[in-house]
Design a binder for these strands. Sequence first.
RNA 1: GCUGCUGUAGCUCAGUCGGUAGAGCGCGUCCUUGGUAAGGACGAGGUCACGGGUUCAAGUCCCGUCAGCAGCUCCA
Length: 666
Amino acid sequence: MPTAILPDGTRKSYDHDVPLKQLAADVGPGLAKAALAAVVDDQVVGLDYILTGDQTASVRFVTKKDPEALGVLRHSCAHVMARAVMRLKPGTRLAFGPTVEGGFYYDFDTDEPLTEDDFPAIEAEMKRIIEADEPFERIEESREKALEICRSLEQPYKVEHIEEGLADHDTVSFYRQGEFVDLCRGPHLPSPKAIGAFKLLSIAGAYWKGDQSRQQLQRLYGTAFFNKKDLDAYLERLEEARRRDHRVLGKKLGLFTISPLVGSGLVLWLPKGSIVRGELEKFIRGELEERGYLPVYTPHIGRIELYQTSGHYPYYKESMFTPIVLEEDEQYLLKPMNCPHHIMIYKSRPRSYRELPLRLAEFGTVYRYEQSGELSGMTRVRGFTQDDAHIFCTDEQVEQEFRSCLEMTQFVLDTLGLTHYRVRLGFHDPSSDKYVGDKEAWREAEASLVRVCEQLGLEAEAEEGEAAFYGPKVDFVVTDCIGREWQLGTVQLDYNLPSEERFALEYIGSDNRPHRPVMIHRAPLGSLERFTGVLIEHFAGAFPLWLAPEQARVLVVSQKFEEYGREVQRRFKEAGLRVGGDYRSEKIGAKIRDAQLEYVPYMLIVGGREAEQGTVAVRDRIEGDQGPMPVADAIERLLEETRARTVRQTFTSSVGLGDRNAQNVY
RNA sequence: GCUGCUGUAGCUCAGUCGGUAGAGCGCGUCCUUGGUAAGGACGAGGUCACGGGUUCAAGUCCCGUCAGCAGCUCCA
């Protein structure tokens, strides 16, 4: 006999199979009314779920206060949307319709393309469907019956999914609402009435099963909430995120620009952005020096043979700018990677084990011909500078070096207050042939990565297929303000480029015999372009003092005090601070407002009182008026905050439709 | 690269049915000289992304190119 264990520990037993709907009613009429779904043994299910036989399960009912409810609601809303589209565009083939962070989508194969102009009609139809309030009805069928149903509904994608994706399922489930029947795992709301507010957000193309060689579908994105207030709040957060977008702020604050005449994906760093980049480079350079790296410089082009030897050319030919051809046998590539150049520095003379580990570092600028549709502000570009280095070491040194690289990356991210990142272990995909090197070396390398991460207490998740072609890696991945993920820092282990088939690197060991070194590729920031783009959003344009293009600005109360203002400005400048001055014939309120809007961290306000006493009235961008203090004290205060690289404010929230952890995929 | 959308002043955007372009901010000049988030007046500023086409007439309609946006795919 089925038994349910409720959250408060009470057990309810039945002498017959019992649907959760009834269980809820037995617990109380209030619950029966409020319950939207349930969690049975950690699995979210609908109220149509039936406790059977000798099943003993923990059951927790989900109401709109529980976080699980929103996902169920959105998935139901996706069905409502699909039903509306089916009504408006008969014959549409349905693909997948999962929930994603922030909402849901559904993929359609329509005869005529959908456009945003179709949204009002679809939304109106959805509204009618919700108001009609027909229940979602779960139907379980055998595979054969299910195939028959999907064939009769003329839903070829569903047929394919039952045949392939669900090959190991004996039965599959459908949900029916009125005339609309869809293959679906569920769960759904008891009825659509709970969908209090929804909105279609965008339309885009998407490939069937994510495969570029297959049919392109129309992906309709939307979001839904229990009430209008939550929807409005979400839309407001989207707006805010948009204002924090590095492309918007980069333009507004004069940090960078991109000119079609120069070329798309090629960043022009404006003076203010260049200051931020320069400070980051200075910071990294200091760390490199302390950690025993040696600076090198290499040219921006190299002969094509260099990249044929490394293996990059055959693998990434399509993603490179086409070769510069001088003569048949003399071709050059704009370098897409720094490693082959650094390898040639290693190879410039015989190496002894006494030199290892040899750490060669360069802010190396590389060029990659990224697909046009991929380009995005500073985060995906065609020319970028990596804070790159390659470490050549012995087998015994690998783990220690690898650990140091991870520690440096963590240190750099911590310094900037970037704490919301995930660590991804990029492992090879055993079913792919894109990797070079023997299996044993890969196995060993991946095992050592896991070991080091465990030692450091790094919570890392392994992902197959994310490795570089020459070795596994550890990536630091952050999410931007609209929910997209970007890889920043990376540390990669490489047993292949040093190998006989590639560059045949050697060092002479203590036994006076040649040995093969191991390489580590690493870049804590990744690229300065992408990192700066992410930082702009991370600080919402308000950089901490040490990075701020203009650290302080002298504001004179009236132009009568310009002379004293310029004297103050000179003293701050001599102390090494980046200080501007506002001597316009504006009122002090206007000058403060402008400085605030430009995110100048400190305002130095001077008028008659300050001129007389040799002080400045310091106004903190965050805290406001700090009152007057001697010029020397103010300088010392700012210098101290700069030296400490203090981070006082960050913004980490992200909204949008990122599809990590997509639920209910069919 | 693919699907959909967009491109008007330095920026953000309006421009109805096809009838030769507007606002706010910013910028310049002048007045104003002030005490912690917007003082006032006047003025300059446009190849309506680019190239074709339809039309008596195109910012507006059609085609192409370039660029951007959203998503997919890719990412050494």
